[in-house]
Protein backbone atom coordinates (compact mmCIF):
# COMPACT_ATOMS: atom_id res chain seq x y z
CA UNK A 1 0.00 0.00 0.00
CA UNK A 2 1.35 3.30 -1.06
CA UNK A 3 0.43 5.21 2.07
CA UNK A 4 2.85 3.17 4.19
CA UNK A 5 5.80 5.33 3.31
CA UNK A 6 8.80 4.46 5.46
CA UNK A 7 11.68 6.74 6.19
CA UNK A 8 14.56 4.77 4.84
CA UNK A 9 17.64 6.37 6.29
CA UNK A 10 19.41 5.71 9.59
CA UNK A 11 22.30 7.41 11.40
CA UNK A 12 21.00 10.86 10.34
CA UNK A 13 21.11 10.00 6.67
CA UNK A 14 24.59 8.47 6.73
CA UNK A 15 23.15 5.16 5.55
CA UNK A 16 20.23 5.18 3.13
CA UNK A 17 18.36 2.03 2.22
CA UNK A 18 16.49 1.25 -0.98
CA UNK A 19 13.59 -0.63 0.58
CA UNK A 20 12.06 -1.25 3.99
CA UNK A 21 13.18 -4.89 3.94
CA UNK A 22 16.73 -3.78 3.26
CA UNK A 23 16.53 -1.33 6.14
CA UNK A 24 15.37 -4.10 8.51
CA UNK A 25 18.43 -6.22 7.67
CA UNK A 26 20.66 -3.18 7.97
CA UNK A 27 19.34 -2.46 11.46
CA UNK A 28 19.82 -6.14 12.39
CA UNK A 29 23.48 -5.90 11.38
CA UNK A 30 23.87 -2.72 13.43
CA UNK A 31 22.23 -4.29 16.51
CA UNK A 32 24.36 -7.44 16.13
CA UNK A 33 27.56 -5.41 15.97
CA UNK A 34 26.60 -3.48 19.13
CA UNK A 35 25.74 -6.72 20.97
CA UNK A 36 29.01 -8.32 19.85
CA UNK A 37 30.97 -5.31 21.15
CA UNK A 38 29.11 -5.54 24.48
CA UNK A 39 29.79 -9.27 24.80
CA UNK A 40 33.50 -8.91 23.94
CA UNK A 41 33.93 -6.06 26.44
CA UNK A 42 32.01 -8.15 28.98
CA UNK A 43 34.28 -11.18 28.51
CA UNK A 44 37.66 -9.41 28.37
CA UNK A 45 36.88 -6.50 30.71
CA UNK A 46 39.79 -4.26 29.61
CA UNK A 47 41.89 -2.54 32.28
CA UNK A 48 40.86 1.02 31.28
CA UNK A 49 37.21 0.15 31.85
CA UNK A 50 37.73 0.32 35.62
CA UNK A 51 38.41 4.06 35.67
CA UNK A 52 35.63 5.67 37.64
CA UNK A 53 33.75 8.36 35.74
CA UNK A 54 30.81 10.25 37.30
CA UNK A 55 30.48 7.75 40.14
CA UNK A 56 30.49 4.66 37.95
CA UNK A 57 33.06 2.53 36.09
CA UNK A 58 33.70 3.71 32.52
CA UNK A 59 32.89 0.24 31.17
CA UNK A 60 29.45 0.32 32.81
CA UNK A 61 28.75 3.71 31.23
CA UNK A 62 29.66 2.25 27.84
CA UNK A 63 27.28 -0.69 28.40
CA UNK A 64 24.42 1.62 29.38
CA UNK A 65 24.96 3.98 26.45
CA UNK A 66 25.14 1.05 23.98
CA UNK A 67 21.92 -0.34 25.50
CA UNK A 68 20.12 2.94 24.94
CA UNK A 69 21.42 3.03 21.35
CA UNK A 70 20.02 -0.47 20.82
CA UNK A 71 16.71 0.52 22.41
CA UNK A 72 16.55 3.52 20.06
CA UNK A 73 16.92 1.41 16.91
CA UNK A 74 14.45 -1.24 18.12
CA UNK A 75 11.84 1.45 18.85
CA UNK A 76 12.55 3.66 15.85
CA UNK A 77 12.92 1.03 13.12
CA UNK A 78 11.37 -2.24 14.33
CA UNK A 79 8.43 -0.55 16.06
CA UNK A 80 8.25 2.08 13.27
CA UNK A 81 8.41 5.02 15.68
CA UNK A 82 10.36 6.83 12.95
CA UNK A 83 7.20 6.87 10.81
CA UNK A 84 4.80 8.06 13.54
CA UNK A 85 3.84 11.69 14.11
CA UNK A 86 6.07 13.82 16.30
CA UNK A 87 3.32 14.16 18.93
CA UNK A 88 2.87 10.39 19.36
CA UNK A 89 6.62 9.94 19.49
CA UNK A 90 7.05 12.51 22.25
CA UNK A 91 4.02 11.29 24.19
CA UNK A 92 5.47 7.78 24.44
CA UNK A 93 9.17 8.51 24.76
CA UNK A 94 9.31 11.55 27.03
CA UNK A 95 6.70 10.23 29.48
CA UNK A 96 8.74 7.08 29.99
CA UNK A 97 12.13 8.80 30.07
CA UNK A 98 11.02 11.47 32.56
CA UNK A 99 9.43 9.03 35.01
CA UNK A 100 12.27 6.49 34.75
CA UNK A 101 14.94 9.15 35.37
CA UNK A 102 13.10 10.37 38.45
CA UNK A 103 12.62 6.85 39.83
CA UNK A 104 16.25 5.90 39.22
CA UNK A 105 17.58 9.07 40.78
CA UNK A 106 15.56 8.80 43.98
CA UNK A 107 16.12 5.06 44.49
CA UNK A 108 19.85 5.05 43.76
CA UNK A 109 20.35 8.12 45.95
CA UNK A 110 18.60 6.39 48.82
CA UNK A 111 20.50 3.13 48.29
CA UNK A 112 23.79 5.00 48.44
CA UNK A 113 22.73 6.45 51.78
CA UNK A 114 21.90 3.00 53.19
CA UNK A 115 25.25 1.68 51.96
CA UNK A 116 27.00 4.44 53.91
CA UNK A 117 25.09 3.51 57.07
CA UNK A 118 26.31 -0.09 56.76
CA UNK A 119 29.80 0.94 55.65
CA UNK A 120 30.42 3.32 58.54
CA UNK A 121 29.41 0.58 60.96
CA UNK A 122 26.25 2.08 62.41
CA UNK A 123 24.55 -1.22 61.74
CA UNK A 124 26.49 -4.47 61.87
CA UNK A 125 25.64 -7.12 59.33
CA UNK A 126 28.84 -9.14 59.14
CA UNK A 127 28.98 -11.46 62.14
Amino acid sequence: MADHAHKLEILRGLIKFKSNTQKIWGVLILLSIITAVEVLLGIYKPEWGRTVFLGMKALNWIFIVLTIVKAYYITWDFMHMRDETKALRRMVVWTAIFLICYLLWILLQEAGYIFEIYDKGYIKRDF
Binding site: L107, A111, F115
Partner: peptide
Protein backbone atom coordinates in the same frame (compact mmCIF):
# COMPACT_ATOMS: atom_id res chain seq x y z
CA UNK B 1 9.74 -3.07 34.18
CA UNK B 2 11.76 0.03 34.99
CA UNK B 3 10.26 -0.12 38.49
CA UNK B 4 11.63 -3.66 38.86
CA UNK B 5 15.03 -2.77 37.42
CA UNK B 6 15.27 0.35 39.57
CA UNK B 7 14.47 -1.78 42.64
CA UNK B 8 17.27 -4.12 41.54
CA UNK B 9 19.58 -1.10 41.25
CA UNK B 10 18.49 0.00 44.73
CA UNK B 11 19.45 -3.34 46.29
CA UNK B 12 22.66 -3.45 44.34
CA UNK B 13 23.78 0.04 45.36
CA UNK B 14 22.84 -0.83 48.94
CA UNK B 15 25.30 -3.76 48.82
CA UNK B 16 27.60 -2.27 46.20
CA UNK B 17 30.75 -3.74 47.81
Amino acid sequence: FSGFLAAYGFSRFKFID
